[in-house]
Nucleic acid binder design. Structure first.
Lengths: 193, 193
DNA sequence: GTCTATATCAAGATAGAC
DNA sequence: GTCTATCTTGATATAGAC
């Protein structure tokens, strides 16, 4: 069913990945996916029950890819707060929105099969930030009164909210400013940074 | 054309306001708006050229209403950082998403007539936060090295990102945690708070 | 200003040949 | 496994009566 040998299946999922990022779930039709992939109607409905399952497969792949990127960013070595800053200031295409969380406000997010990969991605980032912040706190590099979990949640929120600001103002700088603010707040909350 | 006397026009805009918040722009059809408003096809296309203009009118009203709420929240009186905290910790229906910025990732945001009210709302909040943070800084209540504009952008991003986290995890607590983190960071960055 | 009836096209999926 | 042809429904808008 999900055997890797079938060429059209892979083409369909690849097309879905591109279109989900570009247009979201509701605005992506099976026809669009078929046109971009070069497959016919039959291929899609042979490999998948319908649109939702195509999107689920695409989102699962996207989440796995992005989680691998996150793991590389947070790889041990640099001081913990440097890793946090590296995540925050990473280059992004702000106007395109977050590859996964751009779907947050679609009705489709009420379906676990679609929501789960997105939640896993966001949750993985939160956990990575959390680990760094605990490490910084244990080394005395974080002001008392700061809960690593809550701060981690605030930082991922700044990034996801930054995408929203950029889209709404139609200006990448809106996201950069929010990230700057987060970096400044983090520095002000770091006694020995 | 936009005279306040026409009853069906108002009913149509009121229905559009409700549906835009609940479902977004693309997922709201003229039929839905007509069904909820009790008007017929003709009324909508008599008062508006089409769906986009109905949404523009609805968004303009929503932005005006929400900006009035923001102005009440930031009314002079309390210390500036108390007003910032009051905005951050305000009660919200996290799973419904931001009434205006929930549209951020829709293709419709590329149209200025729809984007502008949303941008005005978000920009107004940023300006209100900015004013409070400048006031706090001038009173010595903000750590040096913190740019009020950037911190204001980060805080509105935490709120908008908090909505995203709540939707993605399908849990209001995800937003509350992010807000908590922002409040803690702000406190850690406030020398005399 | 408001209504109903109609037109057009795309979304999403099925049928069945190859 | 893959294809083309077809089906059904809803989105969006127009026509024209009242």
């Amino acid at each position: 069913m999900a055997r890797p040998g079938s060429s059209k299946r892979e083409a369909i999922v690849a097309a879905a990945k591109a279109l989900l990022w570009e247009r979201g779930y509701e605005a992506t039709s099976p026809r669009d996916v078929l046109a971009l992939s070069g497959a016919g109607q039959g291929s899609l409905y042979h490999h998948f029950p319908g649109k939702r399952e195509v999107a689920a497969a695409a989102l699962a792949e996207m989440a796995a890819e992005e989680i691998a990127v996150i793991d590389a960013l947070f790889a041990p070595g640099p001081p913990p707060l440097d890793r946090v800053r590296a995540y925050l200031t990473r280059e992004r295409q702000a106007l395109r929105g977050c590859r996964l969380a751009r779907l947050a406000n679609e009705a489709a997010m009420e379906e676990p099969v679609l929501r789960d990969p997105v939640a896993a991605y966001v949750g993985h980032i939160r956990a990575s930030l959390h680990g760094c912040l605990e490490e910084a706190r244990d080394a005395g590099g974080l002001a008392p009164g700061l809960a690593p979990g809550a701060v981690a949640a605030a930082l991922i929120a700044v990034v996801e909210g930054g995408y929203v600001l950029a889209r709404v103002h139609w200006d990448e700088a809106a996201m950069r400013e929010a990230i700057d603010g987060a970096v400044q707040l983090l520095a002000a909350a770091s006694p020995q940074a």
